[in-house]
C-alpha cells in the first residue's frame, strides 16, 4: 500500500522535531548555566586565592628583602645584632617555604600528579626531625611541645609528603595553642596514629565542615589574627588520603583541639616486589 503524506502527518512530524530540538536547546542551556556557575565559582576562588596569597607570600619576601638591605647598609655595633636580624630572616624564609610547598603540592594534586614516592622509614624519627626544624619557632613563641611515642614505628610511605603534613600540623598547633602542644604517636594493629593536641581556642561547630576546605582560613577579613593561605589542612587531607589513611579532629569548649592522622602500616608494594623476584604470578612483557 502506498503511504500518503497528509498535512496532519507533516504537522505532527514538524511538531515532534521542534519538541526534540527544543529539548536539546533546553539541555544545552542547562549545561551552559552549569558552566557559567562553575566559571563564576572558579573566578571567585581565584580572586580569594590571589588576595590571600598577596599577603601571605608577599609579606615574608618583603621582610626578607628589607632586613637583608638593613644588614648590608647599616653599620652594626655588635655581631649579636646582626645575628638577631639574620635569625628573623631565616624564620621568615622557613614560613615562606612552607606556604610555597603547600601551594605547589595543591597545584600538583589538582594537575593529576598525585604519585607517591614510597620508602620505608621510622615514623617517630620523622616526627622528631619535624619538631627539631621548629625548635627556634617554639622557643620564640614560648610554647611547650611534649612528645609521647613508641620506640620505632616502621612505615612505608612518601617521606617528603608526610614531612609536609606534620610540618603543617605543628605549624597550626603553634599558631593556635595557648601554651601547650602534645604530639602522640601510637602503633595500632594495622595502622599508626599521630595526634596533635593544642590547648588553644575551640573551633566552633558551625566551622567544622570548613576545616579541610581550600582557601578557608577560619579567621578571615580585616580582623585576621592568624596568618596562613588556608591550604595547609586541605593539602594534608589530600596527602593522607592518597596514602590510604584518614584525618579526624575534635574540638571542645575549654579542652583545646585534637587532630588525629591514621596511616595504614601494611606494605602491599613490598610484598609484590618480592613476588617479582620469585616470578610468582607475573609475566614479563
Amino acid at each position: 500500500m502506498k503511504n500518503i503524506l497528509t498535512d496532519d502527518f507533516l504537522i505532527d512530524e514538524i511538531k515532534n522535531r521542534f519538541t526534540e530540538k527544543n529539548n536539546q536547546i533546553l539541555q544545552l542551556s542547562f549545561e551552559l548555566d552549569e558552566l557559567r556557575k562553575k566559571l563564576f565559582d572558579s573566578e571567585h576562588l581565584k580572586t580569594k586565592f590571589l588576595s590571600i596569597i598577596r599577603n601571605e607570600l608577599k609579606n615574608p619576601v618583603s621582610a626578607i628583602s628589607g632586613l637583608s638591605k638593613l644588614v648590608v647598609q647599616k653599620d652594626f655595633d655588635s655581631v649579636e645584632d646582626i645575628k638577631k636580624i639574620m635569625d628573623t630572616i631565616r624564620l621568615e624564609a622557613v614560613k615562606f617555604a612552607l606556604q610555597l610547598d603547600n601551594v605547589l603540592i595543591a597545584s600538583s594534586y589538582e594537575g593529576g600528579d598525585n604519585n607517591l614516592f614510597l620508602s620505608g622509614f621510622d615514623l617517630c624519627e620523622l616526627i622528631y626531625e619535624v619538631k627539631r626544624s621548629f625548635e627556634d619557632e617554639i622557643k620564640s613563641r614560648q610554647k611547650i611541645v611534649e612528645t609521647q611515642m613508641d620506640h620505632e614505628i616502621k612505615i612505608y610511605a612518601d617521606r617528603e609528603k608526610l614531612k609536609l603534613v606534620f610540618k603543617n600540623f605543628l605549624d597550626n598547633a603553634l599558631k593556635f595553642s595557648e601554651k601547650n602542644i602534645k604530639i602522640i604517636v601510637l602503633k595500632r594493629k594495622n595502622s599508626a596514629v599521630v595526634s596533635f593536641y593544642n590547648d588553644g581556642y575551640e573551633i566552633e561547630e558551625k566551622n567544622h565542615h570548613r576545616i579541610f576546605e581550600r582557601f578557608s582560613p577560619l579567621d578571615s577579613g580585616l580582623s585576621r589574627k592568624y596568618s596562613g593561605v588556608g591550604l595547609g589542612l586541605c593539602v594534608c587531607g589530600a596527602i593522607i588520603e592518597s596514602h590510604g589513611g584518614k584525618t579526624d579532629f575534635s574540638s571542645g569548649q575549654g579542652s583545646g583541639t585534637l587532630f588525629e592522622i591514621e596511616l595504614p602500616l601494611d606494605d602491599k608494594s613490598q610484598g609484590e616486589a618480592d613476588d617479582i623476584e620469585s616470578g610468582e604470578g607475573f609475566i614479563i612483557l
Binding site: 600528579d113 604519585n115 607517591l116 608494594s269
Partner: peptide, 12 residues
C-alpha cells in the same frame, strides 16, 4: 630502584 605507586589519573 626508586619505588613509585602510580595512582588513578596520575602520570610518572
Amino acid at each position: 630502584r626508586i619505588r613509585i605507586y602510580l595512582k588513578t589519573g596520575g602520570i610518572v
